[in-house]
Amino acid sequence: MSFINYASREINCKIVYYGPGLCGKTTNLQFVYQKTAPDAKGKMISLATETERTLFFDFLPLALGEIRGFKTRFHLYTVPGQVFYDASRKLILKGVDGVVFVADSQDERLDANIESMENLKVNLEEQGYDLEKIPFVIQYNKRDLPNVTSLEELRELLNPNNVPEYEACAMTGEGVFETLKAVAKLILVDLKKGGA
């Protein structure tokens, strides 16, 4: 749920990166962090295990600039992808304005992607959201690897509603900002309609 502050003329929105374990959610945020000017970002917080798996969430606040005299801020979160952290994922989805689903393109992760997408739907519904109605984009990550599923197949299985989709290699940053811009844009368009 966006927070519009008329007193300080700010608008805050929350974006959540969702997807199976090791698909590259944290890597997306790390790349955004590295490539953003110091005055446009806050600290990146990662609550992670000793092996760098996300334990609760990553958090990265971004200040994008002004629209009509309002400072626009986006709060980026990642969920922990490992299946048994479901309780935490539900908490992080609270108040979400837009979702990025990061798919792992590797063949052997196809089932994990489908399961995670299903899990996203269920968890959103529990909070009263409908995945088909909220700002939503999909990123097919790890396109640099040799053993990837074809785009056509990924699309068919994960993107039946034809939401904006991007190929990416989060490690090198390819597709990372395109994905972020797309979801941010959908959120702002939603606000424009006054429906958010």
Partner: peptide
């Protein structure tokens, strides 16, 4: 039906 997720709005007066 899904609950509409309206924005959280803050006005000058209440902010003060």
């Amino acid at each position: 039906m899904f609950a509409s997720q309206s924005s959280f709005v803050m006005y000058d007066e209440e902010f003060k």
